[in-house]
Every structure is written in C-alpha cells, then in structure tokens.
Write a protein that binds this DNA or RNA. Structure first.
Length: 943
RNA sequence: GGGUCUGUAGCUCAGUUGGUUAGAGCGCUACGUUGACAUCGUAGAGGUCUGCAGUUCAAAUCUGCACAGACCCACCA
C-alpha cells in the first residue's frame, strides 16, 4: 500500500467533545518519559528526527520555581505561578533555548511545625511531651506526605519542570549552602548574637521577623492614672499590666507642664510593686495624647527600649515567654495578661488613682502564622547586621541590594522588576530595613550551626572557649581547649534564610560542590555555570519582601552575582466579587476540582487571560467554564480539519505521512514544510496566511514582554473570530486545491502558538494529526512570507464587509432565515474582485439565491440600498419599507454628525498647523468618504 | 502618619508612546441545526471612560484637586 493510499485509509475519528480527563495524565506521562523537561534532552532546533540534539551554543533559560510550602495542598496562587512559569518555559523551549525549570519545595519551618502541632493537639499531646527527636520525625513524615500531594498536583497543572533536579530547602545540599553562608556572614561580623527586644509569639514560642508580624485594627481602652498617691502626675496607657516593668516616665521636652520634673527620680508603690521611675525627656512623646506623659517599659516596647538605652534605664522583664506575668511579681506571677490587666485596673480604681478610661482605635500585632498576639520582649537572639560595611564590597548588605536594582552590580544589568511600580516599594523597604533576626525557637528547620564549649568546668576554660564555635561540619572538639563536651545552639534558622539562597543552592548536585573560596561561595557544578543567574523570578507581589528581597541580599553577598535578571510579579487571586479566598468565607476555588471539571487547559487560561501584572484578579467558575468552551472550540476546529483528511501528494510532503523527507524551503528561505502554489491562492487564503504571519510576530513579542493576557486574547480572537468564523466557513464553499493544505498549516501554527498556554489539548490534537515528534519540542513558528505579490488582507476585508452588510440588512428587516433574496451589486472599481468572490457572497449565511454584479447601473425598484466603500448593494424582495426608511434616516443622521465634527476639526487652523500631516490627511480622507456615503444614501432615500 | 494601586457596558476586565464612531468575555434580547462545535451560529441593545479644573490642535490616556475602594509600610503609648 503506497503512502498515498495509507493517508486516505486513515479516515480519522475524533470525539465530538474534548474530554480533558481522558487524555491529560497520559500526555503528561509521555512528556515526562521522553525527557523533554530536561535541558539536556531533545530540543526543537531539530528539523528532522536525526537531529534531535541540543545546539551547544543555545542560550540558557532558567526559572527557579518558588518552592511551595510542604504544609498542605496547592491553591490558586500556586496555580498562577505554575501557569505563568510554564508558559515562559514552554515558549523558550520551543524557541530552541536550553531550558531548565527547577522545581522544589520549602520546609517552611514555622508554618509546618504549627500544622503538626495542631494535629498533636487534636491527639491531646504537645511537642514537649513528645520530645524533640520524635516530634521532628512526626514533622518530617507530615512534610513528606504533603510534599507528595503537592508534587502530584503540580504535575496535574501540566508543569514541565525537570523533576530530576528537584530540590528541598532542608536537604543535604541546601543544608551545606545554609551553613556555608552562615559561616561566611559570621566571619564577616555580619551575624551577631545579642539581647534585643524581639517580636515574640507566645504560642509558637518563638521570635518572628518584623515582616512576619501582622496588624489588625481594633478598639482598645486607654487608661489614665497615677502610679501612686505620691507620684505628681498621671500617665496614659493601653497596657496597664506592663507598667509593672516601668523604669521611667517620658515627657516631651517642650511640655511646660512637666519641665520641672525632668531628671527627677521617684520611688513608688504601684499596686504592691516597688518601682523606681526616672523622668526623662523625649521628643517623640506626643503632648496631645492622654496626659502627655508616658510610662517607659523598656522590656516590652521597641520605642521604650530605645529610650531606655539612651537614658540608661534599667530593663525589667514583666512578661515571660508564655505570655504570662513573670514570677518576680508577687500577686501577679503566672497570671495571663488580661487577668493581670483587669486586676491592676481594679486596684487602681479602688485606690481612686484611675482618672479616665476611654476607647481608641489601635493596631494589635499578630503572628502571621497563628494569629496569636505578639509580645515584644527582650531575648538573646541571632541577627544579621544589614548596615555594617563589608570590606571587600565597601558596602553594607542593604547598599548592595539597593544597588542591584538601582544601577546593577557585579557587571550585571540592573534587576528589572515588572510591573515597575514595585521598584519604589522595594527601595522603601530596603531603606527602612532593620537588623534581621534569624533565630527561631522552633524545632523544625535548619539548626543554627553554632556550638558552645562546656568543657569540664567553664571556669577553667580558656577565655576563647566562651566564644561560639561556628562550623559548616559538626565540630568534634573545642578548638580552644580540646574539650569534646560541645553543645549545639538549640535554635533554628528563619526559613527565609534558606529560601534566600534558592537560586544558587538548587544548582548544586552534591554537597562537596559547595565551597568557600576567597570569601566567596562557589557552586562548582556545570549547572551553576550554565544556569546562574536565573532568567526570571516569577511570584506573587505579596512575597516581594519576604523572599525576593532576601534572595537579592543573600546572593549578592555570597556568590557576588545577582540571583535573577527579571522579576515578574503577579497579583493575588480573589473570588468573583473581589474578596480574598478563605476557608471561613467558603469562597475558595480549588484548582484540582476545577481541573477535574473543566480540564487543566481551561484553568490555565482563566488564570492568565484578563489579568494584568501586579494587579489582583478575580476568578469565577464561570470564567473557567468559558475557557473550557474555548478548548472545545479548538478541538472541533481541529476535528473538522483532520477528519476531512488531505489527499494530495503535497500533504504527504508537509509531514502528514512520511516523516523521512527533508523539509521544504519556504519562499523566504526559512525552513518550512509548506509551500503554496501562488496562482491558486484566493483572497481568503492570502488573508489568513498574512494574518497568521502577523499573529506569529505579535505573540512572540508579547511573550517576550510578559504580556501573557494580551497574547492570549489575540490568539483567541484569531482562532475563533478569524479562523473558525470566517476562513473555515469560506473553506466549505471555496474549493481551491490549496485549501486543505492551508487549513493544516494554520492549525499547525495555532497549536504551536497555543501550546504554552494550553499544553494538553494542543498536544492531543497534534497527536491526532499523526505527527511523529511531540509538540512540546516543536519549533516555534516564524513569520515566513508564504505569499508573493499582492496581499490579500484588504481584498478579503471588502468581501467580509459586503457579507456582513447583507446579514445586517436581513436581520434588521426581519427577513426569515429560510427566505432567499436577490441582490444587485454595483461594484465600480472592485468589479473583478467581487465577481471572483461571487460564490462566497451567495453562500456565507446571506441567503442570496440570485446575484447580479455590474460596474454600475440604475438603482432597482423596491430594493434596500447600502453602500460600503464605494460599492453599492441592493437587496431586492422582502423589503420592509418603514424599516428601510428608518434605517436610512438614522444612518444619514449619524453620517451628518460625523461629517460635521470632521469639518470643524479641519477648519481649525491650529489643527492643520500643529497636528502631524499624517493625521490631517487621514482626517480629510475620512471626511471625503463619508460625504460620498451620505450622497448615495440620500439618493437611495429619495427613490 | 508615609506610600502604592484601582475607579471604562449589568458583571469581570483590556485599552502599549495622547490621534478612526472606546473594545473583549460573561450576562441580556431576537432569530437560527447550511458538511467541526448548542461547550454552537447570525444579528442586536448597553458606556457624557467617578467628578471638577488644567495642559494640548486633540485627553479614557498627561498634570492637579476632590470623591470612592483596595493594599503596603511605620506604629501611638
């Protein structure tokens, strides 16, 4: 059987409706098994099967996937990230780049520990009862399960990432990187340990970084009272219970009321507790708030702490790590804050010291993980100094990070942030950054790589023994005294410390590739050489500071390079009404449910089209259903084309049967499988081919510019409105020999252009077309000029307009669909064109049974006349005279209005003088055309 | 208190450097199985682009102010 016969015997069957769930998993498996996700694998540079190797000089393109937390399941936010990154990855893969999308997950210390603690609580246990080791086992087990779920879900989204390189923030390589960078920073004096007021979460039993604290507006009471009868004036506070730790009272230096007291010291008995209070002056005190005097509680307020430092006040801790009153305070010891507050207020009332009690608006600080109120309290913690100059850079971490975005560092272009407005936010945040508290008192995470020597007896140790031992590997003995009695710091590191290293730590394939050389962290791997810095970092704008900024800090410091060249920030997903999705509101749209119902491709489109970078987007099930309809439309376009298989020898050459032939050369010299017989091309053919060319250019440009939504909309418009609604319809009536070849050509290109957006349905259709190679590694199309000589866009546009005009007339005059009508066209200069397109004008839902085309003539009686661009169309029969008159009057009115405004514009000397000639000319041309139309209409109206 | 963003059709949003009669999807109305698709087709209604002022020959687009909403940062004792 010859290949030609084979082709004809291949009468394809395709389901009437595309059912995503039938194909998606299978397609993903095929991609994965083919190795196409790996940068080493087959790349689209190849034009035939013998040449599937990657071009060695290919440009690298890499995205480090923001690692999802191993705390549960995938939500729509992850969905957007995965879709946008997959679009970029697939697009660049098809363009022949060496592409790596590196996936991973984040141990998310506090978040994960909190989840497991909740589970334990349900079992009636807590982590302390379980003990550190057993607890950690429990967390790891949970993390593993959660990880597996999430990975499965990521695959469901169609993510074409290289699973062979999957990383985890807590695995061996990443741990080595964390410890190395810690050591470098410690040796540079950037990491220090100090007693400072920190944000303390009494539930997590841990510190939090400044940006891990959330604020909630609330009403609270302000109490105004005297500490005791012998204290001269009253103070105001919202937290009477902390006043037990007051060691001073601050007033504004300008405040005449209190000037005389400044510098005085008072010993008072405050609710049974002896307080020593020094009156200090501080410009920060608001004279108008309360009494204008404020009790200074150095241990439990950041500002008071600063005042205390300046004025040498004693620091007295009132609240302990449990969030209860410290045991030193007889009568209050062990009580929780609210109890203590009530009690103190009661006592003050009894002593008639309380003079005022009023409600004000106030912000309550909360833990971002568990919503427990934060207590500022002094604690011994590890910090990163962001202001200290680093000798080899002559800059601080802060300055280095600002410069990377402002003008670029280490000979790199400045980091580009999209949308640009976030650059301002970034600078603002960086400029105000305080030292970063990196120690956490939780168990799950990177243990701080610091050991202390206990010796046999501290007193006998050398002075150096008291220094912390910072080491990448667990030290065997104290370097100072040789004692083997070492103990590791109990704390763990802030989870963002490890994720801050993500772009480079993930490029190490084994721990021994991570080295420190000349005060620089070296990742000695091929991957690092090829893939760092990464091309783009794509994530939600809500973690610009948490993560993006920290990657810039850590990477510039450690590896002396930027982590990424571009930052693309997407918005948050909200529900159809613009509300945040939350469990309590019950408005969460689960990506997996939607995938099961509508297919991955529909979900992907809904997350990308109709969105703007950095702006929040509203998502509704209706929207997803709409894109499901679109995937089905595409499927049916393909179904129509494929199940009417081409039957010429040239289709065979175009790759539909034999795949061993060399590709043909297109007219522009670009490699293409297609070549058309120019003589045979109709107006519609030229139109669609030319538009396809423009489309390719535009989509390529849009994807390069991160304009995903625009690209998607253009593609949708072309696919549905141009290709399906017009060209496909034309193809049913216009029997040119080139037709089916062109249909395949357009379909093929559309599938390629759509593939990054909807990988599954396009790959499935590709398979239905009988292609040998998978679409995922096909070559991105080029705008090759397949048409010689005159272009078709304008000509076919005229035909489209004529057909539309006739349809409008039919609808307006309520001509029954089944009723055939007669039309006469006075074509003027377009005589030849219109004559050649007679069949289309008669066939495309115009219901014309008789069509007469003349150069010009006398208007037929009882006809409706319309005129488009100098062509007159007369519809005969079924004329509703009233309707027709109405239409003409309306049209004349409209035209007169337009003509009037154009005339005004053109009589304006300033317009003529100052507007560019092009605009003026266009305006004049428009006026002339409209005047012609008007004249014709008026003539028609008379008869 | 400091800052950012948004306000365009009933709803969700596009609208690139100012320049055709301001667009799309959904929804709505009327009609409709012509060789893929009713998850479809044809046609239609619907907007003084939040308001005011300014710059300009020309403003949805640039500037200022006002109003409404969202968010970020700092945080008040």
């Amino acid at each position: 059987m010859g290949s030609f016969d084979k082709l004809n015997s291949m009468k394809k069957e395709m389901a009437k409706i595309y059912e995503p769930s039938k194909y998606e998993d299978g397609i993903y498996k095929k991609w994965e098994e083919s190795g196409s996700f790996q940068p080493e694998a087959g790349q689209p540079q190849a034009d035939n099967l013998d040449n599937l190797k990657l071009d060695k000089k290919a440009e690298s393109y890499i995205i480090s996937m923001p690692p999802p937390n191993v705390t549960g399941t995938l939500h729509m936010g992850h969905g957007v990230t995965l879709v946008i990154e997959d679009i970029l990855i697939r697009f660049n893969r098809m363009r022949g780049k060496r592409v790596l999308w590196l996936p991973g997950s984040d141990h998310a210390a506090i978040a994960t520990q909190t989840k497991v603690e909740k589970i334990l609580k349900e079992e009636g246990m807590n982590r302390h009862e379980l003990g550190r080791d057993k607890f950690l086992k429990r967390v790891e087990q949970y993390a593993q399960e959660s990880h597996d779920t999430i990975i499965g879900q990521m695959k469901k989204m169609g993510s074409s990432c290289d699973w062979s390189r999957e990383a985890y923030t807590l695995d061996e390589m990443r741990t080595k990187a964390v410890r190395s960078v810690f050591k470098m920073m410690f040796d540079d004096g950037l990491i220090y340990r100090g007693e400072r007021i920190v944000n303390w979460c009494p539930r997590c039993h841990s510190t939090l970084a400044d940006d891990e604290v959330e604020y909630k507006a609330q009403k609270t009471k302000v109490y105004t009272f005297k500490y005791s009868r012998d204290f001269p004036f009253a103070i105001s506070t919202t937290r009477p219970e902390t006043k037990l730790g007051d060691t001073g009272v601050a007033v504004n230096p300008k405040d005449k009321r209190y000037k005389k007291y400044i510098g005085e010291e008072y010993k008072v008995d405050f609710c049974g507790v002896r307080l020593k209070l020094k009156i200090i002056a501080d410009r920060g005190v608001d004279m108008k708030f309360g009494t204008g005097a404020v009790g200074v509680t150095p241990a439990h307020s950041f500002i008071d702490g600063q005042m205390a430092e300046k004025n040498n006040l004693e620091i007295k801790k009132v609240i302990n790590e449990e969030g209860n009153i410290h045991e030193d305070f007889v009568g209050f010891s062990g009580k929780n804050i609210l109890e203590a507050r009530e009690e103190i207020v009661k006592k003050l009332k009894a002593q008639k010291l309380l003079t005022k009690e009023e409600e004000i608006d106030n912000n309550l600080s909360l833990c971002y993980r568990c919503d427990t109120p934060i207590e500022p309290l002094p604690s011994l913690q590890w910090f990163i100094d962001v202001n200290k100059k680093i000798a080899r850079y002559k800059k601080s971490l802060k300055e280095l990070s600002i410069e990377a975005v402002k003008k670029g560092v280490f000979n790199r272009e400045k980091i580009r942030i999209i949308p640009e407005r976030f650059v301002k936010n970034y600078f603002h945040w960086m400029n105000n950054l305080r030292d970063w508290c990196i120690s956490r008192q939780i168990w799950f995470g990177h243990r701080i790589p610091v050991w202390y020597c206990r010796g046999n007896d501290m007193e006998q140790c050398l002075p150096d023994c008291k220094k912390p031992i910072v080491s990448i590997n667990t030290p065997k003995e104290c370097p100072a005294c040789g004692s083997k009695d070492l103990v590791q710091d109990k704390d763990t590191l802030d989870t963002w410390f490890s994720s801050g290293l993500w772009t480079f730590s993930t490029l190490a394939n084994s721990p021994d590739q991570i080295k420190i050389k000349n005060k620089r962290l070296i990742i000695d791997s091929d991957d690092f050489k090829k893939f760092h810095p990464t091309s783009v970092l794509e994530t939600g704008y809500d973690i610009l500071f948490f993560w993006v900024a920290r990657m810039i800090i850590m990477t510039t410091y450690a590896v002396q390079d930027i982590p990424f060249q571009d930052v693309y920030l997407h918005g948050l997903i909200r529900d159809a009404l613009g509300r945040k999705m939350s469990k309590s509101l019950g408005n969460v749209i689960n990506p997996l449910d939607m995938i099961n119902k509508y297919g991955t491709d529909a979900v992907r489109l809904s997350l990308v089209i109709g969105t703007t970078p950095g702006n929040d987007m509203n998502l509704s099930e209706d929207k997803i259903a709409g894109y499901r309809n679109f995937t089905n439309k595409l499927w049916n376009i393909a179904r129509y084309i494929i199940t009417n298989p081409p039957a010429t020898a040239r289709h065979e050459r175009a790759g539909y049967e034999l795949r061993t032939r060399l590709p043909l050369r297109g007219t522009s010299g670009q490699v293409t499988n297609y070549e058309f017989d120019q003589e045979k091309l109709t107006n519609a053919d030229k139109y669609i081919l030319e538009k396809m060319g423009y489309l390719i250019d535009e989509i390529t440009g849009d994807l390069n510019d991160y304009s995903f939504s625009q690209a998607g909309e253009k593609l949708r418009e072309f696919t549905w409105a141009e290709f399906a609604d017009w060209y496909l319809e034309v193809s049913k009536f216009e029997k040119s020999k080139e037709k089916s070849l062109i249909l395949f050509y357009i379909l093929e290109n559309l599938l390629k252009l759509w593939h990054p957006f909807m990988p599954f349905v396009t790959e499935k259709i590709w398979e239905e077309m009988g292609k040998a190679k998978m679409l995922i590694i096909e070559k991105w199309p080029l705008n090759t000029s397949l048409i010689k000589g005159d272009r078709g866009i304008n000509n076919f546009e005229i035909i489209k307009n004529i057909i539309s005009a006739i349809r409008i007339i039919r609808a307006e005059n309520k001509i029954e669909p089944a009723k055939k009508i007669k039309a006469v066209i006075f074509a003027g200069e377009q005589m030849n064109l219109i004559k050649s397109q007679e069949i289309l004008i008669k066939s495309l839902r115009t219901g014309i049974s008789e069509l007469e085309i003349k150069k010009s003539g006398v208007k037929p009686k009882n006809a409706i006349a319309i005129s488009i661009g100098g062509i007159e169309i007369h519809i005969i029969g079924a004329v509703d005279k009233e309707k027709e008159k109405e239409r003409i009057v309306k049209e004349i009115e409209n035209l007169e209005k337009l003509i009037k405004s154009a005339k005004i514009k053109l009589s304006n000397k300033d317009f003529l003088n100052k507007a560019p000639g092009k605009i003026v000319k266009a305006e004049m041309k428009k006026l002339k055309e409209r005047e012609n139309e008007l004249e014709k209409l008026k003539k028609a109206g008379k008869s």
